[in-house]
Amino acid sequence: MTNTKKNAQVILLHPNDNILVCVAHIYAGDEIFIDGQAVGMLKDIEVGHKLARRPLVVSDKIYRYGAPIGSMTQAARIGEHVHMHNMQSDYIPSHTRTRQNKDRSEAQ
């Protein structure tokens, strides 16, 4: 577990990961550094949530802990929130309080 340069707000869990994990609340307007590059944050991101370490395209596998945890259903910019609106499981669908059917993704 290493901190990406100067950031106490995000951590990189494995060198092969293409996402970072938020460990202190990120506010819209914050600037964070991703691999040395300053990225302006457009939206709030909560603790425990993921953001793109690099630009991601549809079908990209997402790596966390160096292991695949699902695939993108939408493209994401560097620094963008990666969650149910733009990625999905490669195994079994996840449900939320409002979406309890067998759709593969929130993004339909």
Binding site: V21, C22, E46, V47, G48, H49, K50, R64, A67, P68, I69, G70, V82, H83, M84, M87, Q88, S89, D90, Y91, I92, S94, H95, T96, R97
Partner: peptide, 15 residues
């Protein structure tokens, strides 16, 4: 996988 898991940033079962 419970709704609270998603609220807390987990997206998929394998994650």
């Amino acid at each position: 996988f419970a709704p609270g898991n998603a609220d807390g940033g987990l997206t998929t079962m394998e994650e």
